[in-house]
């Protein structure tokens, strides 16, 4: 297991270096980085100065290694707009996104497992039909539209929750609710399908013959087997949330990494963009590792 984790860490390290290479050289390909870092109306003099300070006159390869050296020390440079280290700005925003993503996914997974499992228990029953109908709608609802409609109804018309921003528990409700819908719809479908297979399996027949109660058959025998394909999809959806739920964060003015990235791109705060890419990439790597570990915990046949 430790061996496996080590191998995965090395492989991910290599991918991260690849990502740095890609981002670094792509940004240089677009031309003079002063154009990216400085405002459009900056004088030639300030551009010269900028190049001198940041070593932009050095050969590209030298620049790359000094950039890598900085990265290893966790130094992404300062944010140009905020005059503080870019990594601090990103980590602050990432903490928000992480909370939002974790809360949402926890809700999604627990609700989807219950709803999907119950739907699978009586295939074609009334509960199954309702669950299938709404999960299909949920899985295909565009979140920007749902977000705006939700604001109009719950914030503007009814005035139950604030339209945007942070500060109270009420501020979290709409973003979580909107982010919840799509992964929930998708995962209910996966849980249902996977549970139907598990419930028709031979070991469930054995459990029936043993006189195990229905609840234990569903949630002990079938569910753990059915979780394996579900975890893959959950990981995929969680990765999308960690990347920053760009649309939802922007609409609700939520100070997460998605909104930060959009703002930084618009403001040409290039150091922040770079730092945000590296942080989210690392987070996704860690999450994939957690999923692999979870796999081996759920299924004793999987050993790394």
């Amino acid at each position: 297991m430790l061996n496996f984790l080590g191998k995965r860490a090395i492989a991910s390290g290599i991918s991260l270096v690849g990502l740095v290479l890609l981002v670094f050289f792509l940004s240089r390909l677009t031309g003079d980085p002063t154009g990216l870092y400085l405002p459009l109306d900056a004088s030639e003099e300030s551009r010269m100065q900028f190049r001198e300070i940041h070593g932009l006159n050095d050969p590209l390869i030298v620049q790359f290694f000094s950039y890598m050296g900085d990265l290893i020390r966790f130094d992404f440079g300062d944010s140009i707009r905020r005059s503080e280290p870019a990594i601090d700005v990103v980590l602050r925003a990432f903490a928000w996104t992480l909370q939002l993503g974790t809360l949402t996914m926890m809700l999604v997974v627990s609700c989807a497992i219950v709803v999907g499992s119950l739907a699978a228990f009586h295939v074609g029953g009334i509960f199954d039909r309702i669950a299938t109908f709404f999960s299909l709608i949920g899985a295909s609802a565009p979140d920007f539209w749902v977000a705006i409609v939700a604001i109009v109804i719950f914030s503007v018309t009814l005035g139950w929750v604030p339209t945007s921003g942070t500060g109270s528990v009420a501020h979290w409700i709409l973003p979580i609710a909107v982010l919840f819908i799509r992964p929930f719809g998708l995962i209910v479908q996966i849980v249902r399908g996977s549970m139907i297979t598990a419930l028709s399996s031979a070991y469930v027949k054995t459990a029936r013959a043993k006189g195990i109660k229905n609840r234990a058959i569903i949630f002990v025998h079938a569910l753990r087997n059915a979780m394996l394909p579900v975890i893959t999809v959950v990981g995929d959806q969680a990765a999308a949330l960690l990347n920053g739920a760009v649309v939802v964060e922007t609409i609700f003015g939520f100070p997460g990494v998605g909104k930060l990235m959009i703002d930084s791109i618009l403001q040409r705060d290039f150091t922040v963009v770079m730092a945000a890419i590296m942080v989210t990439a690392t987070a996704i790597f860690v999450m994939n590792l957690l999923i692999d570990i979870l796999y081996s915990i759920l299924d004793p046949r999987i050993r790394y």
Partner: peptide, 24 residues
């Protein structure tokens, strides 16, 4: 249900698929 496994028990043809793979 209370009879099953208690008064009347059953074993099956293919024990690999009839035992739950993820529990000891």
């Amino acid at each position: 249900r209370q009879l099953n496994g208690h008064r009347i028990a059953m074993i099956f043809q293919d024990p690999l698929s009839h035992l739950n793979p993820v529990y000891s």
